[in-house]
Design a protein around this nucleic acid. Structure first.
Lengths: 210, 210, 210, 210
DNA sequence: AGTTAAGCGAGACGGTACGTCAAGTCTTCAG
DNA sequence: CTGAAGACTTGACGTACCGTCTCGCTTAACT
């Protein structure tokens, strides 16, 4: 996750302030909480961070890239402790993810930058690198553990395994986001239990397809 | 789906032009295709529709409400023909939905208005009424047919049935959106087959929870 | 003196506010007094005039054109009452002109726009039309009266007469401006008397050149 | 003409580069020619001179002081060769001065810095010291020679003589500048002949005032 | 048939934010 | 301490849209 343009030869001249970087990202998150994505302005973020607007633009090309970086770090807090069963592991991570999506800074920002990314390839790539791909580890870890426990068969072909991992990732992330943001209904224990049951119950059928 | 502010007393004076309405929505879709949501401007839509800006604002309060109405009608084209099995029905509707999300006007608009709706309750309500709730019919019809065919047990409690319908809706819609817009991977036949297998295979486990 | 772009067909649409025009010019003069030309900003003028910046730019292309219009009207106040002799007439108008140049709004603005006009042909033309050419009337009137009084011979050729009028204009205006702004010395009665004497005394020699 | 801040104790450390000084002034003149005063930037001058911005600011407080120094040296090129008569001497120097004002670097710079000086006393003083007062020598020399030739009486009081010198200076410089920059008409031989005739013819009348 | 109230196109209006640019200062490293 | 490099704060720039308003004109429904 390279958050800014890294100069190739930053030999001479006054170096960029490292404090400014963190102050800006923190100010961005604060502005997202108070104003939401669409009312967040670069000038306001600069003021909050105690920094000039030009300093923002020296580091990030536009609002969306800044917001992605500001929010990305939050997603790295997701963890997958070993709770003893696949179903429990899934429920835990889904609840964690739902908690993250309830935070106003993620709720307002995530969909907005994804929407923008449909027309902005560099942004799409940045989202993928900074957020999406980094969280696939959760699926990989969960599957590996389930195989070690014997809950899932382990002799599958690597290509198929990857495809199923991707499917699970899209289903879990998509379902939670849709529930939370589109349907605007709570992601409570009962809903999580049903989703987990669906996944655990259906995985066998998927694997059987080959 | 009330597409505009309906005046309470439309008694006297010149009536609103019905042609203008459709021209505006069509112009909005065209602008979405060419410019995307974030670069679409009200002035541009008005010009494309051959209409004054005033005329737009007399009918829609702002850009988001207009975009929701312009896009909503596209979602009504989704159908669920009886293909003989639950798995086939699901695969069919998922492919149709994916096709819809690949259209540039929906791709750019859907996530954007949902993002805005996280901070705008009336907009959230309009999205729900114009788009989301209207498509739940697909899940209801599919489930009813599967029960008629005997693929699913029919004696479930109504409340649980509703909850499972909602779950399926969020999983299907969420997964497809996430695959198409976030992961930015193609929703092809193989992926659809795996998703359908997961659902059909998992439904039993979910129903067993009661 | 066309103070703004006059649309050829201002048939439709909301008409421009006439009050805004005068408020802006008045605000410009006030800003010149307080801040001088180089620290005058378009935003500040707009604020003082209680008008949006866009309204300024809709009427004037840039700061210099605005300043020329704001100042031009002041030069129209110069008059040439008949005081009975050429020398007295000259002294009177020179003192009036010096008084005008002592006003802070003219002092700071006149040289600045002339400086800019060396690189901006449209501005040069506007200055000529709005300020310079309009004041040549003073020279014409003064000469005509002197001829009527018999102080100057009247049978000169028109072309030569024009050339001498121009010379007198440049000498009087140039000398006063140079004294006031470059030498920064007072234009007092004694200096004016000497300048007038120089002119009246020298005019015969110039006319003799043919 | 002290062109820069002279450090009182230039004892220790690396000495300032003398070459840099001339490179900067030359770069300033080049920038004036290409861009004019208002578009000349300190950063651009520094780049042209192959020097850091810091180096500029260590020597000149701001853009205007730099420009005055860059241009002042050009005015020192004016000379007053003895051509045998007052009229000829005046015509010669006026043509020289007009030639100087036609150069793009002086044309754009002179009026601009004078305009700025109306609100900036130190700048006014610098202009006076570097440019204005230095050229009064031309008037003094011309007058002295005319007296030696017997074209002008020599027994005048010193104070009156000074005042007349100043008047002539303002009239000549002012008239030429006004003709060249405000009226934007050529300073050709005929115009110069008329101006000279006016002066020579009028001087007697002025001297008669006492 | 005439009145009348709303619709309509046009475009000016007060705002807010944009992204850029230059001024002049500060910080680092190299000599 | 000088000097090059370049990051920094500040503040204005001129533009683009927003959503509102004010015109003069048009149009159908109700007298």
């Amino acid at each position: 996750m390279r958050s800014r343009t890294t100069p190739d030869t930053p030999r001479t001249g006054r170096p960029r302030s490292a404090e400014a970087d963190e102050a800006i990202l923190e100010a961005t998150r604060a502005a997202l909480v108070e104003l939401g994505w669409s009312k967040l302005t670069m000038g306001d973020v600069a003021t909050r961070a105690g920094v000039a607007k030009t300093t923002l633009y020296r580091r990030w090309a536009n609002k969306n890239e800044l917001v992605v970086d500001a929010v990305a770090v939050l997603f790295d807090q997701l963890e997958l402790p070993d709770l003893g069963s696949l179903q429990a592991d899934i429920e835990h991570v889904v609840l964690q993810f739902a908690g993250l999506l309830e935070r106003p800074e993620t709720k307002t920002a995530l969909m907005a930058v994804v929407a923008e990314s449909t027309r902005d390839a560099p942004l799409r790539e940045r989202i993928r690198a900074s957020i999406v791909d980094r969280q696939k580890r959760l699926v990989l870890d969960g599957r590996r553990r389930a195989q070690e426990r014997g809950e899932l068969p382990s002799e599958r072909e690597p290509l198929t395994a990857d495809a199923i991992d991707d499917l699970i990732f899209d289903v879990v992330a998509g379902a939670v986001v849709h529930r939370a943001l589109v349907s605007a209904e709570p992601v409570d224990a009962q809903w999580v239990a049903r989703l987990s049951a669906l996944l655990v119950g259906g995985l066998g059928a998927v694997a059987a397809l080959g």
